[in-house]
Design a protein around this nucleic acid. Structure first.
Lengths: 152, 152
DNA sequence: GTTGAAACCTCCAATTG
DNA sequence: CAATTGGAGGTTTCAAC
């Protein structure tokens, strides 16, 4: 499935503002509303658009502390990886988790209120798992750039 | 500004589906539409809701390769940091960039089509900057968990 | 907080190039 | 086949209570 220029412009607009109307888009793209509407429906149907979400200010909702966290396991056989993954997705502090090729095994994005809550997460949740070899914390001081957009 | 239970339920709903209607919310929360509407407007006005965005499938739009990348600079005086930041935000491959307290200086989320494009980014763009000491790539093999939601 | 109504938007059928 | 027009039904927005 190929995206033409109009599809890309629609996706770009929706990636910055999911609430833009077909009317506004039809004005911007110099088309009537129906083709815009049908393209959006097609992009949704094909799963190119995965969904529409509200983004919150993490400081204002009381989760100002962002940390990336690298994890090395002791045992690396498949059942051990799967067990770690099953456990880590249940921690609500962990909003992202990636299996990594490199010096360690997993990279976690961890969102908490303060150092006390991070310490609690680390000691009582993450390090409490059986198969943990090593955890290293990378505290985010400044968000230089952040975007949910995929460049097209 | 405090969030009560109703606010939290609204935010949770909007974080998973920005297109939910006030009507559906009013049904779920057993309230009429107006208080829902006014709470959402307040949450937007106060910047608790930063915006509404469409999320795309990065595989389906041709950016399947995700890499995190740690960067160490040579010079760390403020003007050097600022220069690096000014340059890195302009790379469209870099969708996130964090200034980190730890063993290195910056953590980058990099989105590309394939290894060739990553190589090109690394060699011709990132490593071409003057002040780079060291770059280390962490290739994402599996996305175990991913969410734009902030837990409330 | 509720009701109710105007304005706007989504969605689709009919139609045209 | 892909666009436009136009209108029914749903949603947002807001005034009055």
């Amino acid at each position: 499935m190929e995206l033409d220029e109009i599809d890309k412009q629609i996706l770009e607009a929706l990636q910055t503002n999911a609430r833009i109307t077909t009317k506004e888009l039809s004005y911007d793209l110099k088309l009537s509303q129906t083709p815009i509407y049908e393209r959006i429906k097609r992009l949704e149907r094909e799963g190119i658009i995965k969904g529409y979400v509200a983004l919150l200010d993490k400081e204002k909702v009381g989760k100002p502390m962002l940390t990336y966290c690298s994890v090395q396991l002791k045992e690396h056989a498949k059942p051990f990886l799967e067990q770690f993954e099953r456990e880590v997705v249940n921690f609500n502090e962990v909003v992202e988790c990636y299996y990594i090729a490199g010096n360690f095994d997993y990279l976690l994005r961890v969102l908490v209120k303060d150092i006390a809550q991070y310490q609690n997460f680390l000691v009582n949740k993450l390090a409490a798992l059986e198969n943990i070899q090593n955890v290293q914390s990378m505290f985010v001081m400044t968000e230089v750039k952040w975007s949910t957009e995929t460049p097209l």
